[in-house]
């Protein structure tokens, strides 16, 4: 069922013809926060209540997009006079480059990547321009956790606009077993807009998305992530498609990219992606858990919960060596009983 929905979502298949199925399809899109993407594909061909629902989603996504563009403008403004050119990651990049992957996409925050050497300067510039450490992670332990173990600064929230920014200096945590060569990707980045910001090239965008989805997280938004991969893949020209796996190998991200190609090939029926995978398939044993989890997440309900069980330990395992993981979980559980944050109930993430 879900696979059919995914294909309808990107316009590879028509909308479900029966009323009840169409209602179920829209409900599915709503649950997965992809109504905006559905709107970009289907609003023009819709009428009546369906058109209303899609228009509503388009307007909401338009707001996110405006917010994102403006945040980019503000980041460039904050860094004016320095020669730091942050790379926009994920949604920010898709919007800056007007990619299909960015259309109708819901966003809650903006991610940028800067060389580690510039990290302090970037943080200082942002703080001077009105960003503040996010309350929910302002505690000493969280600060230490982010700074020492992770691949980003603790999130900053702008005091007036209340938007969040994640400043990364690498693409996977320092402690993760997968170490992507972010330096290579950073130096291949290209200017966006007026040149004060940058974006990755198309291949690196796909690679980063694959890393983010399969090697760094709990896969919380499966439909959204998979649709993103599909569009990013479609955005590659022939030469890029052919070179994709080589580039992935070069930057040390081959296995997530192979997972991603598997997803695009299997779920969206892309022959091109299937051909690229060719004989270089991952050993079934390594591939199986992730793929089961993807399938489970897509099915929702009990399957999704099962997938969570598979994925939650995995997401941590991907990020930290075992000893450190034990320490972190211990600290986390202790924090449940002994919170560091002194300010109660303030709006924060999670």
């Amino acid at each position: 069922m879900s696979r059919a929905f995914l294909r309808s979502a990107v316009g590879l298949a028509p909308l479900p013809p029966r009323g009840a199925d169409l209602v179920a399809f829209i409900a599915w899109g709503r649950r997965h926060h992809i109504l905006g993407q559905l709107a970009t594909v289907w609003e023009q061909e819709s009428a009546g209540k369906l058109a209303d629902v899609l228009a509503n989603a388009r307007i909401f996504a338009g707001h996110d997009r405006r917010m994102l563009s403006y945040e980019m403008n503000r980041i460039a403004r904050a860094l004016m006079g320095t020669d730091i050119r942050p790379v926009l990651l994920k949604g920010g990049a898709y919007v800056a480059k007007a990619l299909t992957a960015g259309e109708g996409r819901r966003v809650s925050d903006i991610d940028i990547l800067v060389p580690e050497a510039d990290l302090k300067a970037v943080e200082a510039a942002l703080l001077a321009a009105g960003w503040k450490p996010e309350v929910s992670t302002a505690g000493a332990y969280d600060q230490h956790y982010y700074r020492d173990w992770m691949h980003e600064l603790p999130p900053l929230r702008h005091a007036r606009r209340r938007t969040l920014i994640d400043v990364h200096h690498r693409l996977t945590p320092r402690t993760a077993c997968l170490q992507v060569d972010h330096g290579a990707m950073l130096s291949a980045a290209r200017p966006a807009g007026d040149g004060s910001l940058q974006v990755f090239g198309p291949m690196d965008r796909f690679i980063h998305s694959a890393v983010h989805i399969f090697a760094d997280g709990t896969f919380d938004t499966p439909a959204r992530s998979l649709i993103e991969l599909y569009y990013l893949f479609a955005d590659l020209d022939d030469a890029d498609q052919v070179s994709l796996r080589d580039r992935a190998r070069e930057v040390g991200a081959l296995w997530p990219v192979d997972h991603a190609l598997w997803a695009v090939a299997t779920l969206f029926g892309s022959r091109r992606a299937a051909a690229l995978r060719g004989k270089n398939r991952l050993s079934r044993l390594r591939a199986l858990p992730v793929r089961l989890a993807v399938a489970g997440k897509l099915r929702e309900g009990a399957w999704a919960r099962l997938a969570d069980v598979l994925l939650y330990p995995r997401s941590h395992w991907l990020r930290m060596p075992v000893g450190m993981l034990v320490k972190h979980l211990l600290q986390k559980s202790r924090r449940m009983i002994s919170p560091k944050s002194a300010v109660a109930g303030l709006p924060g993430r999670e």
Binding site: G19, V23, E45, S46, A47
Partner: peptide, 9 residues
């Protein structure tokens, strides 16, 4: 498939 998806009576 023009204008046929309206999803309501």
């Amino acid at each position: 498939m023009s204008g046929s998806w309206n999803g309501s009576v």
